[in-house]
Amino acid sequence: MKCGGSTLAALPVSFFDELNELQREGVKPVIVHGGGPAISETLSKLGIETEFVNGLRKTNEAVLDVVEMVLSGGINKEIVRKILQNGAQAFGLSGVDGQLILAKPAANAHEIGFVGEVTEVNAAIIEVVMEMGYIPVIAPIGIDEDGQRYNINADTAAGAVASHLGVEQMIVVTDVPGILKTVNGEKQVLAEVTVTEIEAMIASGEIYGGMIPKVRAAVQCIQGKVREVVIVSGQEPGVLTRAVREGGIGTRIIRTNEGRLS
């Protein structure tokens, strides 16, 4: 499950109750979180300029220090506390811990600085945490063999974690109900969309900004072991149970038309 930091802060108590219930029923959630708005706010307070290139934050050493502080030290522990307060058990991790997320510079590093691409996920660490009865909560900071840190887009990190764990489903919890498409002048949520259709929507500009990394991450992990990615709003009643057990919520991203439900 990928959750934005700002999205998690606004989630109702019922979301965490549901997470607790699913864990008791034998579901093993793994959470990768972001925190873009909180990072931007902290950078602003510190007088550090920030900019974005194709939806990704340009990251120098000063920005990277703030990213790690906010994600690993702030938001990660806030999520763990919220889960604990609602009866479940959680264990906070950074991608740096135990070299959980190994990374290399992004292809356009000359434009965006210390932003990384995931090369490996040490899935054994996550599996041990789950075997102990905890929900892993992962901050998307990567590291290379030389100890250099990288800012990893949370959607990209979540997709990599899902692929390396070999899970069938990734849920992207957002503040929007799914992928929207303009039909007869009105925005409508797409129930299902294929990888090919996503590429066409990016090319046409219907998918833009921060939604691009989300769907790109979905496409990457679907090309691996993940069967489907579901983009949902965390404010929907019963969102997790419906996404995991029932379907019929948000946008389901699938590989080809052969995977359509209807």
Score class of each variant (00 low, 15 high):
Val121Lys: 04
Glu206Asp: 14
Glu228Phe: 04
Ala62Lys: 04
Asn86Ala: 09
Gly247Tyr: 08
Ile125His: 01
Val70Lys: 00
Pro136Arg: 00
Gln223Glu: 15
Asp97Met: 01
Val129Cys: 01
Leu102Thr: 12
Met132Leu: 06
Gly247Ser: 14
Glu68Lys: 08
His33Phe: 02
Val63Phe: 00
Ala158Asp: 08
Leu165Glu: 06
Lys181Trp: 00
Gly224Ala: 14
Pro213Tyr: 06
Gln85Ile: 06
Ala160Thr: 14
Met201Lys: 11
Met211Ile: 07
Val115Thr: 06
Pro136Met: 09
Val172His: 07
Met201Cys: 10
Ser204Gly: 06
Leu71Tyr: 01
Gly4Ser: 01
Gly74Ser: 13
Tyr150Pro: 03
Gly95Met: 03
Ser262Arg: 04
Val80Thr: 07
Ile135Asn: 00
Lys28Glu: 10
Tyr208Gly: 07
Ile222Glu: 02
Ala88Glu: 03
Arg216Leu: 15
Glu111Ser: 11
Ile249Val: 15
Pro177Cys: 11
Glu127Ser: 02
Gly5Phe: 02
Ser72Ala: 12
Arg255Asn: 13
Glu41Cys: 07
Arg57Gly: 03
Tyr150Arg: 04
Ile231Leu: 11
Val161Thr: 05
Glu68Asn: 11
Glu228Leu: 12
Gly133Gln: 07
Val226Pro: 08
Pro37Gly: 05
Val244Trp: 13
Leu100Arg: 04
Val229Trp: 09
Ile31Ser: 11
Glu117Trp: 05
Ala88Pro: 05
Gln89Ile: 15
Ala154Met: 09
Gly209Ser: 14
Lys2His: 10
Pro237Gly: 12
Met132Gly: 01
Ser40Thr: 01
Asn151Pro: 11
Val66Met: 08
Ile152Arg: 05
Gln169Ser: 03
Glu120Pro: 00
Ala200Gly: 08
Glu145Asp: 09
